[in-house]
Design a binder for these strands. Structure first.
Length: 496
RNA sequence: GGUCUGUUCGUCUAGGGGUCUAGGACACCGCCCUUUCACGGCGGCGACACGGGUUCAAAUCCCGUACAGACUACCA
């Protein structure tokens, strides 16, 4: 039997990094064993599901390079099938009608309400004391026929236990007495999550369910449904959760943009880098290595190296520099500075285009210059955004000057106001505007003025790039070229 | 409250009875390189939650405690 796994997000928001990681692991697992990776949108919660979320999830997967096989399944399309299956279980006596009126739950502190309700019922109420559980067939039919609303609940046996072998957490057992007669079908006919998941997984012939650890306890209920349906459950593998820095739940509402995949795309992350980072959250190949290509990840991935403990996604809202996990940031920089130029170029092109800095000559007449320049500046860039922001002066005459750079490198040495334009005149004479030739002229100039090489270089850097930091200044001169270098050295804008 | 799960440097992790005075990466700090720097090189700081066992030997096995997380819904 070929392996079939699925990623089944509910479209109630953009793609969350936790979900993205679940998708990644499913994908890696499928590709590793040569199986299928399917996508199912669990849009049964009509009130919260949106088409926009679905789009953003698909986009996110595409960005990460996680291409799915076969058609997307929308769970809402299967509602009728789910209903029929619930009815079938009812007819077989494996489920029963519960005529208890639906209890109103206030949405606000739902978790607390449920916990306190459970606390109150502690010891007093058995999971099996529903008055309708053993209602005579005729009586139940009569009530139903008279139009009385009812939910359908699974009839969980009095004694026994469910068990399954989790690929990550090992043998899991749970006594029936701990499991309530779960609702399969709501009184309005709407199928509930546990039923829907099981039915769809069966229909999609899913062999391995890889999902977040928050479903570990739900799995027992699902196993019960599989059993009632006479089907063998798939293999389960639960993944440790990704937590916020305070070790609490990482939520869209509380933590905002840092948990959204689109943020990383928009903030200039290289998809391969983020994917690499995500792969190492809760899994490792057991080697002293961090950088893995997709092919290597697929090759090395296996369920038995998945962690059992949750991972913290470390970020600090108060420091801009640490707005997301440092390691993710580092990895992105690592990719930017080491990836093959041909892979990087399209990403830079895209960034420059959206900043209106791209010119078609960069792939034509100026191809060589473009490559040299990108290779020069990528050395100390962290995100793709840096190409259009810190790197702006390389692609445009319209760039900003950093106040601190002006203070530190220009205003502190007032002589530079006349020296730099003077240096420009000396540079006019350089025939071949290369590193060595430029250096010779500047060295000579420095000597004549009795100043330090650094003073001139840093002043020039500020004028030429607007920044106090950057690559070797001689290389900057060379890449900018004679004309622009001279023009900028003579410019007085920064001084005002 | 109950059930389940987990706990190695600040964070991600290696480790599965002796090779552990616990390894790597990020972050942080210092030094070097240097015209600057968020590049590079070298180095430093820094962890087996706690308490009991088992064993010649325990980060590794067992028990307890603490803490954390998940679930406990006619949400998904």
């Amino acid at each position: 039997m070929t392996t079939r796994v699925r990623f089944a997000p509910s479209p109630t928001g953009y793609l969350h990094i936790g979900s993205a990681r679940t998708a990644l692991f499913n994908y890696l697992y499928a590709r590793n064993v040569g199986g299928k990776f399917l996508l199912r949108i669990e849009d049964t919660d009509m009130e919260r599901s949106t088409e926009e979320s679905t789009r953003s999830i698909i986009e996110g997967l595409k960005w990460l390079g996680l291409d799915y096989d076969e058609e997307i399944i929308f769970q809402s399309n299967n509602a009728e099938k789910h209903r029929q299956i619930a009815l079938k279980l009812l007819n077989e006596g494996k489920a029963y009608r519960d005529f208890t009126p639906k209890a109103e739950t206030s949405d606000k502190n739902i978790k607390e309400t449920i916990a306190s309700r459970a606390r109150e019922n502690q010891g007093e109420k058995s999971m099996r004391d529903n008055p309708f559980r053993d209602l005579e067939q005729e009586e139940s039919d009569a009530k139903a026929n008279s139009g009385e609303p009812f939910a359908i609940r699974l009839k969980v046996a009095e004694t026994g236990k469910t068990s399954f072998e989790d690929a990550v957490y090992g043998l899991q057992e749970r006594d029936y007495s701990e499991i309530e007669d779960l609702v399969l079908l709501r009184s309005d006919g709407h199928p509930l999550y546990n039923l829907a998941v099981v039915c769809d997984d069966i229909e999609m012939e899913i062999t391995d369910v890889i999902r977040g650890q928050d479903h570990l306890t739900n799995t027992h209920k699902q196993v019960l449904i599989y059993e009632a349906l006479g089907k063998t459950p798939p293999r389960f593998a639960h993944l440790p959760l990704i937590l916020a820095p305070n070790k609490g739940k990482l939520s869209k509402r509380k933590h905002g943009a840092v948990v959204s995949m689109t943020t990383y795309r928009d903030k200039g992350f290289v998809a391969a880098a983020f994917r690499n980072f995500l792969a190492l959250l809760g899994w490792s190949a057991g080697e002293e290595r961090e950088i893995y290509s997709l092919v290597e990840l697929i090759e090395k991935f296996s369920l038995d190296h998945i962690h059992r403990s949750n991972a913290v996604f470390n970020f600090n809202e108060t420091y801009e520099r640490h707005w997301t996990d440092d390691k993710a940031l580092w990895m992105n920089a690592e990719y930017i500075r080491t990836m093959p130029f041909d892979d990087l170029l399209p990403l830079v092109k895209n960034e420059l285009k959206s900043a209106k800095l791209w010119r078609d000559e960069y792939e034509d007449d100026d191809k060589e210059w473009c490559e040299q320049t990108i290779n020069l500046i990528r050395e100390r860039f962290f995100t793709l955004k840096d190409f259009s922001e810190q790197g702006r002066a390389y692609f445009s005459e319209d760039y900003d000057f950093d106040e601190k750079a002006i203070e530190k490198n220009l205003k502190k040495f007032p002589d530079l106001q006349t020296w730099l334009p003077e240096l420009a005149n000396h540079l006019e004479s350089v025939e071949n505007f290369t590193h060595d030739n430029i250096e010779a002229v500047i060295k000579e100039f420095v000597e004549a003025k009795g100043t330090k090489f650094g003073v001139i270089m840093n002043g020039a850097r500020t004028l030429l790039t607007g920044l106090a930091v950057g690559p070797s200044m001689l290389a900057v001169f060379e890449t900018l070229g004679k004309e622009k270098s001279i023009l900028r050295l003579k410019s007085q804008i920064a001084w005002n």
